[in-house]
């Protein structure tokens, strides 16, 4: 049996070596450089999320933390069919992702492989709208689609065709989502396709693969990281979108972000809004973490 003094000493040695190890880690330039950003995210991202989780466990219509935690809000979400807005958001997000992948893949392929230096100009032109507030752009669609607007007004006065406006319907919301999130699918997919070396596709073709086989066996799997990021980004952003359904959808359907906003504002029911947010966060978070776990960002962004 070791003497108490020796034991104490060995413990001290152990803790001091651990301390040295920690000091060595903390003084690495990478750790130091990451600290400011991490602190910002700690107080501006993690803390608010914890507050939301906290509120979600408070009784309905309370405005502070001084109550016994309860699951009442989550029960009422199920009972009062809030899940419908979840389903709508989920369904519309899925449709948006599928449509955008079909729309963006050929363009992304052209920009990554065919257009040469024209691709830079195209990129610039497609980035510009991103910097215009999305509600202005959606308002532009309202002007285009509304009765007596650009489309229907032109049809009526120039061709004498009268038609009903598609505004304030589900297709209008999908149009808005596709429109707003197009760059978010396009650019990651483009990045993914540009990661496929030309040699490799040529080699596959030379080895007797048809165009379709090259696409399925070579291009698609190698571009998959970019496609996954694009799809996930679009899905997650559509899932939490607010402006599209409000501005283009009227009250045609209510998406989850609508419900959350209403609970906080008109409803004055912070705990309910928080509970809805927690569910959305769980859904989004688990998906994001699942996809991110499978990706190596260094490879995608081009570390040498």
């Amino acid at each position: 049996m070791a003497s108490p003094a020796a034991e104490l000493e060995s413990r001290a040695v152990e803790s001091s070596s651990r301390w040295a190890e920690f000091r060595a880690w903390i003084t690495q330039p990478g750790v130091l450089c990451s600290t400011p950003v991490l602190l910002l995210l700690l107080i501006g991202f993690l803390a608010p999320l914890l507050v939301v989780v906290g509120y979600s466990l408070m009784p309905p219509r309370t405005f502070d933390f001084g109550h016994v935690p309860t699951l009442e809000n989550f029960i009422s979400i199920v009972n009062e069919s809030y899940y419908r807005s979840f389903l709508w958001a989920f369904g519309l997000a899925c449709i948006t992702v599928v449509l955008l992948l079909i729309i963006c893949y050929p363009l992304a392929y052209g920009m990554a492989k065919l257009f040469g230096h024209w691709a830079h100009l195209l990129t610039l032109l497609l980035v510009i709208p991103l910097f215009v507030s999305e509600n202005i752009r959606l308002f532009g669609w309202v002007l285009f689609l509304i009765k007596r607007g650009v489309l229907l007004g032109a049809l009526e006065s120039w061709f004498g065709i009268g038609a009903d406006s598609m505004l304030y319907s589900v297709p209008a919301i999908v149009l808005g989502l596709v429109y707003v999130y197009l760059p978010f699918t396009l650019f990651p997919v483009m990045l993914g396709i540009s990661m496929v070396p030309r040699d490799v596709t040529e080699a596959a073709r030379d080895l007797g693969a048809s165009r379709w086989q090259v696409f399925r066996e070579i291009e698609l799997p190698l571009a998959m990281p970019g496609i996954l990021i694009g799809a996930m980004l679009t899905f997650v952003l559509s899932l939490g979108s607010l402006a599209e359904s409000k501005i283009l959808g009227g009250q045609a359907v209510i998406m989850i972000a609508d419900d959350i906003e209403t609970a906080f504002t008109f409803g004055q029911n912070w705990p309910l809004g928080s509970a809805l947010s927690v569910l959305l966060i769980l859904l989004v978070g688990s998906l994001v973490l699942y996809v991110l776990r499978r990706l190596d960002l260094d490879e995608i962004l081009g570390r040498r």
Binding site: P197, D199, V200, E202, A203, A204, R205, D206, L207, G208, A209, S210, E217, I218, P221, L222
Partner: peptide
């Protein structure tokens, strides 16, 4: 005749092995 239907085959400078 496109590359995939020629009875010829190339070993590339980069080798172009399929990384996946």
């Amino acid at each position: 005749i496109p590359a995939n239907r020629r009875p010829t085959c190339m070993v590339f400078q980069s080798l172009a092995l399929f990384p996946h």
